[in-house]
Amino acid sequence: MEDQKSKDNIKPTKERIFNVSLELFSQKGFNAVSVREIAREVGIRESSIYNHYKNKEAILDAIIDYFKAELTQSGLPEEETTKLMDQGPEVYFQVGSRVYIEQINTPQMEKIWRLVSIETYHNQKIREFFKKELLEEPITGWENVFRMMMEKKMIKPFNPRTLAYEYFSFALFLFFEYYVLKYDEDFDSFMDMALERMGKHTDFLLEAIKI
């Protein structure tokens, strides 16, 4: 613990403010944390926060921007997506599930997912972010995937939007189960557990729609 604290203390002040803020926001919620508390945990004066961030809202904006960048970075390149698609729907979904879970499965990202789950109900900015980045865009992306699979005669003709909701709704269920209902419980490996359950759900769906 002391070693970790020493490592944190040699990081740039702005990064330490970011990390401490994320830790506190993910534990207590955005509104329950004051700039004074952040400064105290970082070990600096409250006024020093404003040398790096305009206000507490700006710290939240930086966290959201970081989250977006990480999600974008961890997606599959278009060329790799096409190659996977050509190997069949089972391979594509197996890799797709792993990519999704890996996006969640880092300590920093876990804290942000937790923060999003806390704040979605009463924070307008987080709610809009959730709707656009974590619901509408993924649903549209999976709709395009199912449409492509139909064009390649891999699956039966269905409404691709409906299939996208059917597939992605289970991923959202896992998100809420872990980050809201069971966040404090001890998991040997959330990634292994989630991949196994996503795999079973995918097998069930493909069994119904595959040609």
Results as ranks from 00 to 15, higher is better:
3 D>Q: 03
4 Q>P: 11
6 S>A: 12
9 N>E: 03
9 N>T: 09
10 I>C: 08
11 K>G: 10
12 P>A: 14
13 T>F: 12
14 K>L: 08
15 E>I: 13
18 F>N: 05
20 V>L: 03
21 S>L: 12
27 Q>G: 14
28 K>W: 00
29 G>A: 08
31 N>F: 15
32 A>H: 11
33 V>I: 14
34 S>F: 13
34 S>A: 08
35 V>H: 09
35 V>W: 13
36 R>W: 11
36 R>E: 15
37 E>L: 05
38 I>P: 06
42 V>R: 07
42 V>Q: 01
43 G>V: 13
47 S>A: 13
48 S>I: 15
49 I>G: 01
50 Y>D: 02
55 N>K: 04
56 K>Q: 03
57 E>C: 08
61 D>Y: 14
71 L>H: 13
71 L>Y: 11
71 L>P: 05
82 T>M: 11
85 M>H: 01
86 D>W: 08
87 Q>V: 02
88 G>D: 02
88 G>P: 00
88 G>E: 04
92 Y>T: 03
93 F>K: 00
94 Q>K: 08
99 V>S: 00
99 V>L: 05
102 E>P: 01
109 M>I: 12
111 K>D: 12
111 K>M: 12
111 K>Q: 05
115 L>C: 14
122 H>C: 11
122 H>D: 14
122 H>A: 12
125 K>L: 00
125 K>Y: 10
126 I>V: 05
128 E>G: 14
132 K>F: 02
134 L>P: 05
140 T>R: 13
144 N>I: 08
146 F>D: 00
150 M>D: 00
151 E>K: 11
152 K>P: 02
153 K>D: 09
161 R>S: 13
165 Y>R: 08
167 Y>E: 03
178 Y>K: 06
179 Y>G: 05
181 L>C: 07
182 K>N: 13
183 Y>G: 00
183 Y>A: 12
185 E>I: 10
186 D>I: 14
186 D>Q: 15
186 D>W: 14
186 D>H: 03
186 D>F: 08
190 F>V: 07
192 D>I: 15
193 M>W: 12
193 M>E: 09
195 L>A: 02
199 G>M: 15
202 T>D: 05
202 T>R: 00
203 D>N: 01
203 D>Y: 03
204 F>V: 06
205 L>C: 02
208 A>L: 03
209 I>P: 01
